[in-house]
């Protein structure tokens, strides 16, 4: 199997879907002539031409709203946000229009749009460019939210998202763009709403999404090495729809849960998952559900401090030990 990067996986997914469906169009700031600010779309303009790969002005409310309108009339726009943080500039278009149009029209109108881009901190770009809005997005019924943590999932989920008839917010990670793994050539899909058990274990369930759950694999190594603790590691991949079954089955087996994510703690995905676990698996718990998030403040710029603010292998390891106390 070829080894490709997360970046190449996204490019392959979008390319395959552009070739498959004439209504798919990739739009965003610098996606075409510049080859993408993060080179996700490198070479795509040359290959598919300016009708399918479209540079937009810096005008998020305008071009995302335009994509929503085009989706209503049958296109399948894939809209790149150079940083997902810029979603807030288009908030009204996303959450009033894309999220509600099907509902307010009594099911007469669909909005098959994908909004994608990197939603992460850790690159010293300060608070405005480091938002992780997965729980804010998933709060809105009508919206689906996907957060792939590796190249295989990125490709399979992107293809599913583009084919989905509902609006999907697809949150990537600049730090993962260069991470490589074996990814099959050609067609495969990863369904939305299906978690992936990255490692099986029996003493503790570490559940999470995004880059933090990849870190958790290393934390799990340390737990095994230093304390002979066997941690199960579950990557949700999709926030809404949510794979409750895999979460609950794991907790019922291990009786302890730790949720890890880069978001701030208040009303985070982990808060939701903790509520679900206490609601549906309370009797199986031997300890309160623990959550590990970024330290609750706007993203700090200072390089060494930002590393400390974010989840890390060590912070996850320490949180796991507390869960096991």
């Amino acid at each position: 199997m070829p080894v490709i990067s997360y970046r190449e996986a996204l490019r392959a997914a979008m390319s395959e879907e552009i070739e498959r469906d004439p209504n798919v169009v990739l739009m965003g700031e610098e996606v075409a002539q510049f080859n993408g600010a993060y080179k996700i779309s490198e070479g795509m303009l040359e290959k598919y031409g300016p009708k399918r790969i479209v540079d937009t002005p810096i005008s998020e409310a305008g071009f995302i709203g335009m994509g929503v309108g085009a989706a209503m009339l049958g296109l399948r726009p894939v809209m790149e946000l150079m940083f997902f943080s810029f979603y807030s500039v288009a908030f009204d278009q996303i959450f009033n229009n894309a999220a509600n149009i099907r509902y307010m029209s009594g099911g007469l109108i669909n909005c098959p749009i994908v909004l994608r881009g990197p939603a992460n901190g850790g690159t010293n770009v300060g608070a405005t460019h480091s938002h992780t809005p997965e729980s804010i997005a998933a709060y809105h019924p009508g919206i689906k939210v996907v957060v792939p943590s590796n190249a295989y999932d990125a490709k399979g989920l992107m293809k599913s998202a583009i084919r989905d008839n509902d609006p999907v917010m697809f949150m990537e990670n600049t730090i993962l763009y260069g991470e490589t793994m074996e990814v099959p050539d050609g067609e495969y899909l990863v369904p939305l709403g299906k978690a992936s058990v990255l490692r099986e274990g029996k003493d503790l369930s570490i559940i999470g999404h995004g880059r933090a759950i990849q870190m958790a694999l290393k934390s799990a190594d340390l737990l095994k090495e230093k304390h002979n603790i066997s941690a199960e590691v579950i990557d949700l991949r999709s926030i809404r729809p949510l794979d409750e079954e895999t979460i609950l089955n794991s907790v019922k087996k291990t009786n302890r849960a730790l949720y890890v994510e880069e978001s701030k703690p208040f009303c985070s995905v982990g808060a939701m998952v903790a509520a679900i676990i206490s609601d549906k698996a309370f009797d199986y718990l031997d300890a309160p559900v623990k959550r590990l998030n970024s330290i609750d403040a706007p993203a700090i710029y200072s390089m060494p401090l930002e590393k400390l603010q974010l989840p890390s292998v060590d912070r996850i390891y320490q949180a796991a030990l507390e869960t096991l106390k």
Binding site: A61, G62, F63, I64, G65, M66, G67, V68, G69, A70, A71, M72, L73, G74, L75, D92, Q93, N96, N97
Partner: peptide
């Protein structure tokens, strides 16, 4: 808020 959507209809 509907004006970008109208622009999108024209785009499509």
């Amino acid at each position: 808020g509907q004006i970008p959507l109208g622009t999108g209809l024209a785009y499509a």
